[in-house]
Design a protein around this nucleic acid. Structure first.
Length: 571
RNA sequence: CGGGGUGUAGCGCAGUUCGGGAGCGCGUCUGGUUCGGGACCAGAAAGUCGGAGGUUCAAAUCCUCUCACCCCGACCA
């Protein structure tokens, strides 16, 4: 193995914080010289960044190979015709980057590869004897995000491992699904991340069953509902929303109109009337292909489109236009309420049953009503679960409390069924010579996103703290004098560690000690070996551990043994 | 896509209101002193002021167009 020298290795660290970065992982990756931006949402990976990417890739590859997946490489440039077969050329829409060749033929830059991989399989697989099989690749993916953000966390070009399983029946497909689920847990654990596997919606990829792997981080863009006691975890949008209401014994008070000039939003009204948002009853008018509906939820809840679609058995739903709202409620937008609403069905969230004395809009400009009560003042046509889960709800599995946490989605597994095999005619012959559709699953892990997520979870005021398996180097050797015994011995120990199988970088630059320590900590190398005064006095090496912060003096042999022990099972 | 903002040396920024010398800090290079927590002194190099066009004797600065990037929003009643 090579011994790397910092004097001629490209690690352009920055003392000052780059202005463009918002979240900690993005700031640190720029400051530590891991990445540089080339265009919005498009990044260069410099040597350190590339090394980390390769480390994560290696972990992913090992776990995929372990469960018998076969690695391939598919083109990034995919012809339009395959996407037309499944209808996704139009469905994916603006999010797919599109290009034309000199003959004006259209191509998309791969945002994913179900079409291409299914094409491979339909050509090559003919018999049940060839199933099951799973193919995967680790390759660049392109999604033209509306707004790229947070460095490589949400960018337009990113490295993803995508795997596709092909099985002869549901039972076998479920097995493939479970294998990948477990492999994903191992990958994320090996990368040293705290995470939860969550039930998830299937979205544009489609299919039957789905789990997301969410790395817990406050800056994450996903929200998940977690049980405080049991293992239940789910995307907030999918989790059953079960209110923890205690039957309200408040007496029903007299209805009263109150002037609320210009107070339209929940926030404005609750502040003006000095009542909590959960006392407000939001009345939302939606338009579907079956007409208009009024939906009631409490002021501190959010509507859930998917749940409503299911309840109303409709394919599309959108908020009604301002015009329609005014026509239906007889009032400007912001003052809708359930009382006296006519010619429209009222669907209420389950949670509104238990409470009394609501505050609602009055169907009249600049007016709200207080002390509105179910049955006495308004009727509901149907109660259902139509909102996102929220803090304080009840766990559907063990009746304890739900909490909401943010996180970063680093992996997603789908049981697809026959969605793509049907569209693309991927069939095999079974034992009886009958043609059958192949059952598919697909599984993605964001390799570059794991890098960002890891920093998001592992950092301190000095910089990044890499988990051992994905650190760009294992050890950094810091000679604190630029010549003589200290320097010679630094080279010597670096070479010894390198030939013992460790990845070592030697800071042979002509800088003062403080500068070297600061850089070493910023780029987050797990172990520093500093040679200076103490070495000359004792002949021992000073080993500094990035986390927990501690330093120990060791003889050469002790040092080697110490590191070997730490890397047991990793190397 | 809607709203807001920014483009001046590798990085961070001042200068633009009120037109006339292109500057500051960090970094880089040279020399010297320093050397266990981002040293100090002296000197130096480095910028089509995002781009195009216009006004003017004169434009980083004023006008028009354009490009890039950043932030907020896009379930709001």
């Amino acid at each position: 193995m090579t011994l790397y020298r910092m004097s001629n290795y490209l690690i352009p660290t920055l003392k000052e914080e780059p202005k463009e970065a918002e979240v900690i992982s993005h700031k640190l990756m720029l400051r530590a010289g891991f990445i540089r931006k080339l265009a919005s949402g498009i990044y260069n990976f410099l040597p350190l960044g590339f090394r980390v990417l390769n480390k994560v890739e290696k972990v992913v590859r090992e776990e995929m190979d372990r469960i018998g997946d076969q690695e391939i490489k598919m083109p990034i440039i995919q012809p339009k015709e395959f996407w037309d077969e499944t209808g996704r050329w139009d469905l994916y829409g603006e999010e797919m980057m599109k290009i034309k060749d000199r003959h004006n033929r259209e191509f998309g830059l791969a945002p994913t590869a179900e079409e291409v991989v299914t094409h491979i399989i339909r050509n090559e697989i003919k018999s049940y004897r060839q199933l099951p099989i799973t193919l995967y690749q680790i390759n660049w993916k392109y999604r033209d995000e509306i707004r790229p953000r947070f460095g490589i966390m949400r960018c337009r070009e990113f490295l993803m491992k995508d795997a596709y399983s092909f099985d002869k029946d549901e039972e076998s497909a479920m097995k493939s699904y479970s294998l990948h689920y477990e492999a994903y847990c191992r990958v994320i654990e090996r990368c040293g991340l705290r995470y939860r596997a969550c039930e998830a919606a299937t979205g544009a990829i489609g299919g039957k069953s789905s789990h997301e792997f969410i790395v817990l981080a406050d800056t994450g863009e996903s929200q998940i509902a977690l049980c405080e006691k049991c293992n239940f975890a789910s995307n907030v949008e999918l989790a059953p929303a079960i209110s923890n209401y205690i039957e309200d014994n408040e007496p029903m008070n007299q209805v009263q109109e109150i002037l609320t000039p210009d107070r339209k939003t929940v926030e404005e009204v609750s502040e003006f009337l000095k009542v909590k948002p959960e006392k407000l009853l939001k009345t939302l008018i939606v338009e579907t292909e079956k007409g208009f509906f009024a939906l009631l939820i409490s002021g501190d809840s959010e509507l859930n489109e998917e749940k409503i679609k299911k309840v109303l058995e409709t394919g599309s739903i959108k908020m009604a236009s301002f015009k329609d709202v005014e026509r239906i409620t007889n009032a400007p937008v912001g003052f809708a309420g359930p009382c006296g609403l006519k010619d429209i069905k009222i669907i209420a969230d389950n949670s509104i049953r238990g409470k009394r004395n609501w505050v609602t809009g009055a169907q009249k400009a600049d007016t709200h009503i207080i002390n509105v009560n179910l049955d006495r003042d308004f009727k509901v046509d149907l109660f259902a679960d139509i909102r996102n889960a929220k803090k304080g709800d009840i766990c559907p599995e063990c009746n304890n409390n739900i909490k909401i946490q943010r996180g970063i989605e680093v992996g997603h597994v789908f049981l697809l069924g026959t969605k793509y095999s049907r569209a693309m005619n991927a069939i095999y012959q079974n034992e009886n010579g009958e043609d059958k559709l192949i059952i598919m699953g697909c599984y993605g892990i964001g390799v570059s996103r794991i890098v960002a997520a890891s920093i998001e979870q592992n950092n301190d005021e000095r910089g990044i703290i890499w988990p051992l398996p994905i650190a760009p180097f294992d050890v950094i050797v810091l000679p604190l004098e630029k010549e003589g015994l200290v320097f010679d011995k630094s080279i010597e120990i670096s070479k010894k560690l390198t030939s013992a199988g460790f990845e070592v970088i030697l800071d042979d630059r002509d800088y003062r000690p403080g500068y070297k320590f600061a850089d070493a900590e910023l780029i987050g190398i797990p172990f520093q070996i500093a040679l200076g005064k103490k070495f000359k006095e004792t002949g021992k090496y000073e080993l500094k551990i990035r986390r927990p912060k501690e330093s120990i003096l060791l003889k050469e042999e002790e040092l080697l043994n110490f590191l070997k022990e730490k890397y047991e099972g990793i190397k």
